[in-house]
Design a binder for these strands. Structure first.
Lengths: 194, 194
DNA sequence: CTAAACTCGGCAAGAACTTGCCGATTGGGG
DNA sequence: CCCCAATCGGCAAGTTCTTGCCGAGTTTAG
């Protein structure tokens, strides 16, 4: 369980049901969540407040997720972006990643998986040399937890990059099959067959 | 048609028919084309000659396109890479892009479109020497090394935030004094008295 | 249906890490 | 000079992690 200063998330989605559902769930998980239902208001929010992560739907009426991503990349280079979309075409995904999205999730989004990814990204980002946000006084957090989160993130990412193949992942990470399995079990990483 | 120095392309594909077909077509289009039928020989080529662009199949026997991409990203950061694949899953595409591929094409590849993309990439690349630097986690080496590096970073950061005080740092990281000392020694972290 | 390729997880020996206990060192104050 | 505070590192018992060996489901291609 984490007790550090809550991370601030901005969720953007034109589907209000999805939006509020995600927002509610993430708040329960301890994040500080702001929402926006379109790119314009999202940009408004981003302009007046600092966020640790933005999660946006790719397909929205008007200015869409890609444009929003682009705007963010130019204006807030350090803000990690998660793109979410159902029925995304390959070119769209490619474009999104090229624009600098950190990850791409397909609808429907598994809340648990989303939370894991969020935590993982925040863990790496906080540690990265970019420490852009003013840090609060005593934000002590066990080293082991942070390292664990990071390791978990690496595992998930490698696994995903390998298309879910354990064999491929172990080569990529330089681990023996057995060790990889152990770590996955220990850290609660599952192969998400896509 | 201009007469500038022809761009040098390296095409990697295990399917020799596809390989030669593409090579032939691209040569007709005025590119200087080299080919390789597997990752190993591709690396060989890349090691001995300079290229402007590499086009590789994602799925190949043995060391696959992802590994090749990874190798290139580490060794030749500026070389743009096109990945080609049929039946690629979303996570694979995301992973490939995250590894730094410039574009991702689906088989069967339309030669005309390919040429367009090649020209476009070469143009932009020549124009902006940096391409896109801000990429996220490029998969590098063994998991353990990366985790170690991360932990070291956290230690250094915490130590610095504590003004070099070990006592303060141990509280902050939730470690016993002895453990902290051990880690510092193991990871080669020293107190930089400021 | 069978063979081959992948994956999993139990088990156990060995390696690596954690941590309390002790004594030693270094700098200030008193 | 002595005492206190902050650090270090040796030692050793206790834990946790790594990894090879084995046997067992699952999938996939023939």
């Amino acid at each position: 369980m984490m007790t550090e200063a809550p991370a601030r998330l901005l969720i953007v989605d034109d589907d209000l049901d999805v939006l509020s559902a995600h927002a509610r769930f993430l708040r329960v998980e301890g994040f500080e969540v702001s929402v926006a239902s379109d790119a314009t208001s999202a940009i408004g929010r981003l302009s007046e407040e600092a966020f640790d992560l933005m999660i946006t739907d790719l397909k929205m009426p008007g200015s869409d997720g890609l444009e929003l991503t682009q705007w963010v990349r130019e204006s807030l280079p350090d803000l990690p972006i998660f793109l979410i979309s159902g029925m995304a075409t390959m070119p769209e995904v490619v474009g999104a990643m090229r624009l600098g999205a950190v990850d791409f999730l397909e609808k429907p989004v598994d809340p648990e998986a989303l939370v894991d990814k969020i935590r993982a990204i925040l863990a790496t980002h906080h540690a990265s040399p970019l420490g852009r946000l003013p840090r609060v006084g005593v934000q002590a957090q066990p080293l082991t937890d942070r390292v664990r989160a990071f390791e978990k993130h690496l595992l998930e990412q490698a696994l995903q990059d390998s298309g879910g193949s354990v064999k491929e992942t172990m080569k990529r990470l330089g681990l023996s099959r057995r060790t990889l399995n152990e770590k996955m079990a220990r850290l609660g990483v599952r192969r998400s067959d896509s």
